[in-house]
Design a protein around this nucleic acid. Structure first.
Lengths: 151, 151
DNA sequence: TTTTGTGCAAAAGTTTTGCAGATAT
DNA sequence: ATATCTGCAAAACTTTTGCACAAAA
């Protein structure tokens, strides 16, 4: 889906979920979902507030945060914590994935389910834990930076 | 080392590092290092402020945070982020380790280097990343909670 | 028309910063 | 003596909350 464009399927899911709970579809909620969709799933709460306000200057932090909470309740969004500890939101429809942050070059890399499978397996083997891929946020040195250090 | 007791080796390292940089050893810094040592390496900034103030009511947040920053600069302390995103500090002398947070029962388990080795190996194999054990903070279900869910 | 949502404003919680006075060297 | 530290106070920043008005159903 191109950025800045309304995500039709998502809107429908949102409207259905709201209707079922006797809650209301509003333009603000649509904007927030759109912004979240356009952010490809990696934006802090504060960033989302700022972006929403670009689309709709009258929007307030309270509405954005309340909507993010609502979206999580509805199972349409999730959040995890980045290396700086701030909340980072993404839509649940985004494929579940982990994150890798390189402390050398600052690059952020996604870790899809297939790539993560052996890692999760190793975690279970070593600890008995079944780790949540969505909360897997690793820091370290990427292959390039490791090579640079050696050279 | 028993809690509430001054960590002699650490104090000496701190004094040496400060002297080398032309900085000063102060009682406040000693208290903060002691509190950190007594916390076994798992305390948020705000918690440390509170604990330091129990020993020395005149201590202020600014001093505590400035000292924590200093200790990190000197390589005597480190911080990572817990599942709630807040900074968690621990002394560097503490054996490097990761953390596992169970979303079922809330238990927190440490992950020592030996247990983590296969996990880090799997991460490198799958991604090329050399992950920092100290920043490894996983969430998931522990073995007990997984069994409960099945039962 | 009735319930829910929004904007506003202010508060809460954590962490940072400026500055004058105090302290270590 | 002089550069560094501390406490104080206030600010910065993210996130939350209370309330009266606006809007959706």
């Amino acid at each position: 889906m191109a950025k800045g464009q309304t995500n039709k399927g998502l809107t429908e899911r949102l409207q259905a979920a709201l209707k079922e709970r006797g809650q209301r579809w509003t333009e603000q909620r649509q904007i927030i979902v759109d912004v979240l969709a356009a952010s490809d799933g990696h934006a802090t709460g504060a960033e989302l507030v700022e972006r929403v306000r670009q689309d709709d200057p009258s929007a307030t932090p309270s509405t954005v945060y309340r909507t993010l909470d609502l979206l999580e309740e509805l199972g349409l969004a999730r959040h995890h914590h980045g290396p700086d500890g701030r909340e980072t939101y993404h839509l649940e429809e985004t494929t579940e994935h982990g994150h890798l942050h390189c402390r050398g070059c600052g690059a952020e890399q996604e870790l899809d389910a297939a790539a993560a499978a052996p890692i999760l397996k190793a975690i279970t083997g070593a600890t008995g834990f079944s780790a949540d891929l969505d909360h897997l946020s690793l820091q370290g040195l990427c292959a390039t930076c490791r090579a640079d250090q050696k050279g």
